[in-house]
Write a protein that binds this DNA or RNA. Sequence first.
DNA 1: TAGGGTACTAACCTTTTTGTATGTATGAAA
DNA 2: TTTCATACATACAAAAAGGTTAGTACCCTA
Lengths: 115, 115
Amino acid sequence: MKSIRITARCPIRTTLELVGGKWKLLILFQLVETPLRLSEMKKKIPDISEKMLIQELKTLVESGLAVRQNFGEVPPRVEYSLTEMGRAVLPLIEEMRNFAGRYEENLLKQRTTGT
Amino acid sequence: MKSIRITARCPIRTTLELVGGKWKLLILFQLVETPLRLSEMKKKIPDISEKMLIQELKTLVESGLAVRQNFGEVPPRVEYSLTEMGRAVLPLIEEMRNFAGRYEENLLKQRTTGT
DNA sequence: TAGGGTACTAACCTTTTTGTATGTATGAAA
DNA sequence: TTTCATACATACAAAAAGGTTAGTACCCTA
């Protein structure tokens, strides 16, 4: 375990910049299995606003984690998918699942123990 | 790889609630090696404001990731350390380091390739 | 008696993030 | 000619996050 020096630019901060915030990880995660259109994503993340979805997708594309493919049809058809780098967030999400799991397990334990 | 259903409460959201935001992970990370006093943490994370530091520490304690030990001395001496659950963020941080590393590697590659 | 060190509070303000509501372009189909 | 579907833009409002400043309490030391 090497030490991370907290400076203007450290791995934690870099990652937070790329995928921090309320929506980015949720969006990326939806794209893991298959590319999706906007309308499809809206269904998968029901409580996101259209504006946020578009806005976040744009930054994800800009930072190279997602790709936008415009089919040039009418009505518009646009598909979003993950880049190779975008796929690299999967282990991160796995760890979050792990962590959340342990956390809730722990809560439960404390309740039954009466702590 | 089981699928995560995006609902009001999913692992991603749970984790974001616990350690999301600009400071929580940075703070937790400082406590990995040793308990620290407020004044020591301020030195380690120079650009955090005192208010944020105290505020975030309080929520970390409330959510059971950190502990506050008051030595009851004058002038005040208080130490913060990680709980067992607090330590469980380490793999997460490790993954962030991984991710950020890959990301920057990738950027570099693209520059030298002229992409 | 004044000043120092430490953890913390509270009031207030600024910035960032998120949300809502409405509008635009396009060509096909009714 | 009107309507529809889709992706997206834009203006504005609300809420959340973050920052600044000025306190407080305590006992010790000068």
